[in-house]
Deep mutational scan, measured.
Amino acid sequence: ETEYTFDDKREADRAAKEAQNNGLRVHVTKDGNRWKVRID
């Protein structure tokens, strides 16, 4: 399990989409004014 934090939602969405394309499970959550992408 890996977690990334992004300031920009577009960057978070791009990272999530890339991980999904690689067959990974992805969870995107909002943390204040930042975005967390957790990859299982």
Rank of each mutant, 00 (worst) to 15 (best):
G23M: 03
D8W: 03
V37L: 05
E11Y: 05
W35Y: 04
N22Y: 00
F6H: 02
K36I: 15
T5P: 03
T5A: 07
V28R: 02
K17W: 08
Q20V: 12
Y4W: 13
R14Y: 09
F6V: 03
D7E: 11
E1A: 12
R10V: 13
D8G: 04
R38E: 09
I39H: 02
Y4D: 04
K9D: 04
R14G: 06
K9M: 07
I39F: 07
R25T: 12
D31V: 12
G23F: 02
E3S: 07
T5I: 15
I39L: 07
N22D: 08
V28T: 03
N22M: 12
V37F: 00
K36L: 14
D7V: 09
R10I: 13
Y4S: 06
K17Y: 08
E1R: 10
V26R: 00
R38D: 05
A16D: 01
D13P: 00
V26W: 01
W35T: 04
D7L: 11
E3R: 03
R38V: 15
R34I: 04
N21S: 13
D13V: 14
L24Q: 08
H27N: 09
D40W: 11
V26A: 14
I39G: 02
F6D: 02
D7N: 10
D40H: 13
D31E: 13
E3H: 05
Y4I: 10
E3D: 08
G32Q: 03
N22H: 13
Q20T: 11
Y4K: 08
K17G: 07
E11V: 06
D8L: 05
D31C: 14
G23P: 00
W35A: 04
Y4G: 04
N22A: 14
E3G: 04
K9I: 10
E18C: 14
D40G: 13
D40Y: 10
R38Y: 10
V28F: 01
Y4M: 13
D8S: 14
G32E: 07
R14N: 09
A15I: 13
W35K: 04
T2R: 14
K36V: 15
T2S: 11
T2K: 12
V26G: 03
T5L: 14
E1P: 11
T29M: 10
R38C: 10
G32V: 00
K36N: 06
N21T: 09
T5R: 04
R38P: 01
T2P: 07
T29V: 13
V26M: 02
E11L: 09
A12W: 00
K30V: 08
T29G: 05
A12T: 01
E1V: 14
R34K: 12
R10T: 13
T29Y: 10
Y4L: 14
R14V: 08
H27Y: 05
G32T: 00
D8R: 04
L24V: 06
E1I: 14
N21L: 12
T29N: 06
A19N: 03
D40N: 10
A19S: 04
E11P: 02
T2C: 15
A15Q: 06
A16S: 05
E18G: 05
F6C: 05
T2N: 12
G32Y: 00
F6R: 00
H27M: 12
G32A: 02
T29F: 11
A19W: 11
K17Q: 13
R14D: 08
K17P: 00
K9R: 09
E18V: 12
R34Y: 07
